[in-house]
Structure formats: structure tokens, C-alpha cells
Amino acid sequence: MTWLISKILLQNTKEMTREQYILATQQNSLPRTENPQFYPVGIYGWRKRCLYFFVLLLLVTMIVNLAMTIWILKVMNFTVDGMGNLRVTKKGIRLEGISEFLLPLYVKEINSRKDSPLVLQSDRNVTVNARNHMGQLTGQLTVGADAVEAQCKRFEVRSSEGGRVLFSADEDEIVIGADRLKVTGTEGAVFGHSVETPHIRAEPSQDLKLESPTRSLVMEAPRGVQVNAAAGDLKATCRKELHLQSTEGEIFLNADTIRLGNLPVGSFSSSSPSSSAPRQTIYELCACPNGKLYLSPAGAGSTCQSSSNICLWS
């Protein structure tokens, strides 16, 4: 618009100069008459009306642009410190209220106010990526509706005081650094492979149960296995066989009463049987060569026989 008005003004100025030159030349060459003719100099007619129209249109455009600029500054809350909820400070950029980012955000550090938490919210999930200087992905944390996933070489959870490692996981091992691991599920803890721990203890007034429903249960230690029930009973049950094995030492059972129930009773053939022998109430504990225990009627001497029916059929 300004270029068009400038072109019109330049053209009118050239025409005015040419008319003045022609008029001056004619006045000098022609003889003077008693009644000289005067020619008006300036912009007249439709050119003048067009010029006024363009000047008025330019003025209206400038007023509208100025009003729109003032309205945008007012709506967007532009100040010398920033725009809207965005404030530029010496320490960086400060956002107040709820902020929405439609494109990726690249920052070095995000901090919340001292008296309010930092909330990251998304309609689908929140993903935090870490990359190296070459742009390769080195770590990723995704918080979704179904799960929280972390992809990294090593995952650590540290305590607020001292920075002690409470939990760490990598491809080789998982380390739990807490003083106590507590499992509150009704089904307990299920381990698919071996477990190495120095101490297993139940909650006070609760029973400790080690169970293998479909396989065997093996407890091994290079310096011994200690099973202690200070205020209750100790019970070991199995479907087939229970093995207590000591390769270099002994198995020591120390109790006021040791009971072995459901032991079979072996037969004993005396050299001088008596038909009027009283009913047998005292038995002798015998052991077969294979280690099986059985009861034999007690007599004046040992009644244990390696040829007993219990030893032969075991």
C-alpha cells in the first residue's frame, strides 16, 4: 500500500515539473499579451480523490494494526519479565500454573517450588528419555496406565538420608539393601531358582513355612544350617523321604522326649517259645543295614536281627 502511494506521488510530481517547464518555456518564447493566461499547479480531479482515499485507508490500517498489537499484548500478558505464565529470571525460566507442551521439551534441569510438588501429567503416558552426546538413547522411564517401565543398564533406589542403596537391579543381579525384606502377600514369596540369604524370619506371632509343592526342598550351608523355633513347634513333612545328612559330623537330637511314631514292628523267633508268654509292651529300637528303623519285642538280650522281615522287604 505504501509503495503504491509513493509511486503515485512520484508520478504526479514529475507531471507537475513538466507542466511548469512547458509553461515557463511558452511564456519566454511567446510575446506577452495584455491578458496573460494562468495555469493552475497541483493535484486536482480524480487523482486528488484517489490520493486522499489511499491516505485514509493507510491511516485506518495503521490504527487497526496498533489496536490488534495492543490487544495481543494484553491477552498474552506480555511484560518486561516474560509472557503469561512464563517468567525469565537470572536462574532460568519460571513457569507458573499449568503449562502444556505440544512438542518435545529439552531442558537441563526441572525444579518445582519449595512449597509445591512437581506434577507431570499426560492423557496416555509420561516418558523421560536420556541420551548421550551422539543422540543415542541410554535410559528411558515410562509411566503408563498399566505399568511403570524403566530401561537402563542399572536401576537404583536410594534412601533420602545418606544415599544408601535400598534396591538395585541390573542384568547380573538384584540387590536389596534394606535392613528387612517384608512380604505381606497371602501366598508368600515364590522363587523359581535358588535363594541365598543368611537369615529367614517370620513376623512375631506368625508361622514360618518353607514349602515346595511339586519339587524337593534343599537347605545347604558350608558351616551348618540352624533351624530354631524359640516359642513354637518345628515341623518337617514330606511325601516320600526326609534326608538328614552330615558328611563329616554327627546329627545330634537333644530333647526331653524323642518320639518316632508309626515304626513297623518286626518279627522275632525265640529259641524257647512259651505259649503262656505275657502280652508284649516293651520294644527294642533296631536298625537295618540300610538304615531303616523298626521295633522288635524286647527280651533278655538284643532281639534285633538282620534277617528280620522288615529288613528283607525294605
Rank of each mutant, 00 (worst) to 15 (best):
M1H: 01
W3H: 08
L4T: 03
S6W: 04
K7A: 13
I8C: 03
L9M: 09
L10T: 15
N12A: 08
E15H: 11
T17Y: 01
I22W: 02
S29G: 03
S29Y: 09
L30Y: 07
P31V: 03
E34P: 03
F38I: 04
P40F: 01
Y44E: 13
L56K: 03
L58R: 01
I63V: 04
M68E: 12
M68R: 08
T69I: 08
I70Q: 13
I72H: 15
I72Q: 14
L73A: 13
L73I: 09
N77M: 10
T79L: 02
T79M: 04
T79W: 03
G82D: 08
M83A: 05
G84V: 01
N85M: 06
N85T: 10
L86K: 02
L86Y: 03
R87G: 00
V88P: 00
I93C: 01
L95F: 12
E96P: 07
S99P: 13
S99R: 09
F101C: 11
P104N: 06
V107S: 00
V107I: 10
I110L: 14
R113Y: 06
K114W: 01
S116G: 06
V119W: 01
V119D: 03
D123A: 10
D123E: 11
N132F: 04
G135S: 11
T138Q: 14
G139I: 06
Q140Y: 14
L141M: 14
L141Q: 11
G144W: 05
A145V: 02
D146R: 00
Q151D: 14
C152G: 10
C152T: 15
C152P: 07
R154P: 00
F155M: 12
V157D: 00
R158S: 12
S159I: 03
R164K: 13
V165L: 07
F167M: 14
A169V: 10
E173N: 13
V175P: 00
I176P: 08
G185H: 09
G188P: 04
A189T: 07
F191A: 11
G192T: 07
S194G: 12
V195C: 03
V195S: 05
E196P: 00
H199D: 02
H199T: 09
R201H: 07
A202S: 15
A202D: 04
A202E: 04
P204A: 01
S205L: 05
Q206P: 00
L208T: 05
L208D: 06
K209E: 13
T214W: 00
T214V: 00
S216T: 09
M219K: 12
A221S: 13
V227N: 08
A231T: 09
D233H: 08
C238L: 00
L242C: 13
L242S: 06
Q245R: 11
E248V: 09
G249T: 05
E250K: 04
L253K: 01
D256Y: 05
D256F: 03
I258T: 14
L260W: 02
L260P: 01
G261E: 03
L263C: 07
L263E: 02
S269L: 05
S270H: 09
S272W: 05
S272L: 04
S275F: 05
A277L: 05
P278I: 02
Q280S: 08
T281H: 09
I282K: 13
L285Y: 10
C286M: 10
G291Y: 04
K292L: 13
L293T: 07
S296T: 15
P297C: 06
A298Q: 11
G299D: 15
G299R: 10
A300V: 14
S306G: 13
S307P: 07
N309S: 15
I310E: 15
S314Y: 08
